[in-house]
Nucleic acid binder design. Sequence first.
DNA 1: TGCTTGATGTCGGTGACTGACATCAACCGT
DNA 2: ACGGTTGATGTCAGTCACCGACATCAAGCA
Lengths: 189, 189
Amino acid sequence: MGRWEPAAAERLQHAALELFARQGYERTTAAEIAQSVGLSERTFFRHFADKREVLFRGQDEFEAAFLEGLAAVPADAPAMAAVAAAVRAGAAWFVDERRDHSRLRQVVIDANPPLLERERHKMAGLATSLASALRERGVTEPAATLAAESGATVFGIAFGLWIGEGEQRSLREIADSVLAELAAVTGTP
Amino acid sequence: MGRWEPAAAERLQHAALELFARQGYERTTAAEIAQSVGLSERTFFRHFADKREVLFRGQDEFEAAFLEGLAAVPADAPAMAAVAAAVRAGAAWFVDERRDHSRLRQVVIDANPPLLERERHKMAGLATSLASALRERGVTEPAATLAAESGATVFGIAFGLWIGEGEQRSLREIADSVLAELAAVTGTP
DNA sequence: TGCTTGATGTCGGTGACTGACATCAACCGT
DNA sequence: ACGGTTGATGTCAGTCACCGACATCAAGCA
């Protein structure tokens, strides 16, 4: 095929996760990751804006699932119902085959503050996208942001449970139960 | 008094905000900030763990206001009522005299992705603290995290409105109205 | 056959951050 | 008053994240 091994970004991502898990995030240099797959440090930074980003490749894909889930809801549905559909669509993206990989990834992220910070940033970005999509559907502020942020929170909690040891339910099922709890908790002013 | 000018961290913070506002975050080096107040770059990093942190000094104070607000609520109050009290206490910390400073600070933060990322991280930390305090009050998961994150979201929205041009209400008043809207938006599953 | 393209390598530089060690005024006990 | 201690600071040298500029070269296309 090509002149180079294909899927450079993907190879870098896998190598990075393994190195981070084995010897720690701080003690792994970008140059080391790159060389472990036969590339130069400079090429690493052509694929990823910074060192943390290497663990967040594919995020857009899953954010797209969220937004498609939202788009599939009738335009006159209440904001929170639309968000719930988006959350369910996002949850469906994480099929059970991804669970082990997600677990390892989360262990690494949780152990490294810079990676945690980036993850929260991504979640916040997802909420921002959701809010923007809601506004295009005619939802006004601050309802759009409230609903969107709540959706992101619900997803985050459900994801954490899904990753947990011994959890058998699918992410989709867990998300549904957390959504129900949200209404119970915040519903009474 | 002392051998050195006092309040080094505070002087650094003010100088940093001014330099960031005037010439941009990226084009301002830590050494430049330090020298502008007669200190060395090394000393800058003794006061702040990293360059971004210089704009977030005092965060703990305001987080403490949140937690004190929560502690003042009777232990048998519903989770969301306790969170509402915490949000109001946090909001009360931002008296009107802080508004102009907050505005300038926010302009700088909003213009620089690394600062935005740090700010979200701080908000997430606040939510985590709140959730932890709720758990100590006997609130179970996932209700504790849902309530805490909702509180942080409400505060963030209210703060944004308070900063907005022409806004006359106090942060406290705005927070109350956003809290009411939260119940309306998320209350129906 | 020769031109263009795109992913990569090489090189040099800037700036964030750190560890080790030195400094020296203020303070404290005697 | 004196000597030891303390704590905020300076200096220096080093590592590593990240970037701009330029070179390379196989694949594809005219």
